[in-house]
């Protein structure tokens, strides 16, 4: 490793470790919590990036995998079934089941043209939600629209991340514990994404994305490779879902709407499809932006005495416009990868 990048790595690492304390001091605990959720979005965006950015498959129901991971964790760690399993089983179980769903969905549909796949995945996302909403009878599995409550917080053996800890006289609240866990997972996610991209398999995905017919003629089993991308992406989603359930303490179908899927897609597209740094940037921006817009809503209230434009409304409106403008003006995203930059300059 070069000396310069090594120094940056140390500095960046130190900044990330100190960040929650700085946030807590300056803006309060609420913001640490916001950053925690943002990290989960980063993980989701990294997963979807494998599917959309690397393999070029448009998945519009990605949130379904997030839901699967969340419900698996919730069922294995709540009074719903009276189970309390350790997270090193519950989290991988969620990721694995999500990957299985990915394969189940992909196997029959991946040989279809890309735009059909988009619609099928969209339908799949809705089906999962409908089932989550209705599987409270005849046997109560998901507890229907109320969702599952009292989920055990993330814990390693007897060490619960859901409580305040004192280390060397330092107060470390729950949100900060969770921050560190999520940070580790996200960094691992980034490293794995990077390695995948640079591997024989990542190269094959890129080839399929560029020209599927040529790729198949070079001996690539396009269907299996696409399935692999689907399963990998889904497992990121499932893992993120498990962490979400353990962090939030309850899950309900409301968290897994189409809007969430589209939101994650926006993160990937706006950040820079296929580029890890861009995707992380996109996820961070879009996860934190709503909070900023909420503040804008407060301003509006103060200045005009009423809310003209509902912030959540405004958020989706802006995202929609950003998607369109991005595709028309800057298809590589805010921070495109080198290859995409070449693509833009080449034209």
């Amino acid at each position: 490793m070069k000396g310069v990048s090594c120094r940056w790595l140390v500095l960046g690492g130190a900044a990330l470790i100190l960040l929650p304390f700085a946030l807590e001091l300056l803006l309060g605990n609420g913001w640490v919590r916001i950053v925690d959720f943002a990290l989960l979005y980063v993980l989701l965006a990294l997963g979807l990036n494998i599917v959309v950015g690397y393999a070029g498959l448009l998945d519009l129901g990605y949130v379904a995998f997030f839901a699967v991971g969340a419900y698996v964790y919730a069922l294995l760690n709540s009074p719903q079934w009276g189970l309390h399993w350790p997270i090193w089983i519950a989290l991988p179980a969620g990721a694995l089941l999500a990957a299985c769903f990915g394969v189940l969905l992909g196997a029959p549909t991946l040989k279809l043209r890309g735009d059909y796949l988009a619609i099928v995945t969209l339908g799949f996302g809705e089906i999962i939600r409908i089932f989550l909403n209705n599987l409270d009878s005849p046997i109560n599995i998901t507890n229907g629209p109320q969702g599952i409550e009292l989920i055990d917080s993330l814990h390693f053996g007897s060490l619960s991340l859901g409580q305040m800890h004192h280390v060397l006289g330092l107060r470390i609240p729950a949100v900060v514990n969770v921050y560190y866990l999520f940070l580790v997972v996200v960094v691992l996610g980034m490293v794995f994404s990077h390695r995948l991209e640079r591997s024989r398999i990542g190269r094959a995905w890129a080839a399929i994305r560029e020209d599927e017919v040529a790729a198949a003629s070079m001996g690539l089993n396009t269907r299996n490779l696409k399935l692999l991308a689907f399963a990998m992406g889904a497992s990121f989603g499932g893992l993120s879902g498990g962490l979400f359930a353990g962090f939030q303490g309850f899950v309900s179908p409301e968290s897994f709407t189409l809007q969430e899927s589209v939101m994650i897609l926006c993160m990937v597209v706006l950040g820079g499809m296929g580029h890890i740094a861009g995707v992380v940037l996109g996820a961070m921006l879009l996860a934190i932006l709503p909070e900023a817009l909420r503040a804008a809503g407060d301003w509006e209230q103060m200045v005009f005495g009423r809310i003209w434009v509902d912030p959540s409304n405004l958020r989706l409106l802006l995202f929609g416009m950003a998607l369109v403008l991005m595709m028309l003006r800057r298809p590589g995203g805010l921070w495109p990868s080198n290859a995409r930059r070449n693509e833009l300059q080449g034209q």
């Binding site: 190269r203 890129a206 080839a207 560029e210 020209d211 017919v213 040529a214 790729a215 003629s217 290859a339 995409r340 070449n342 693509e343």
Partner: peptide, 10 residues
């Protein structure tokens, strides 16, 4: 291929 089909951005 007759009409060249490279992975053009790689």
């Amino acid at each position: 291929f007759q009409n060249i089909r490279l992975f053009s951005q790689m």
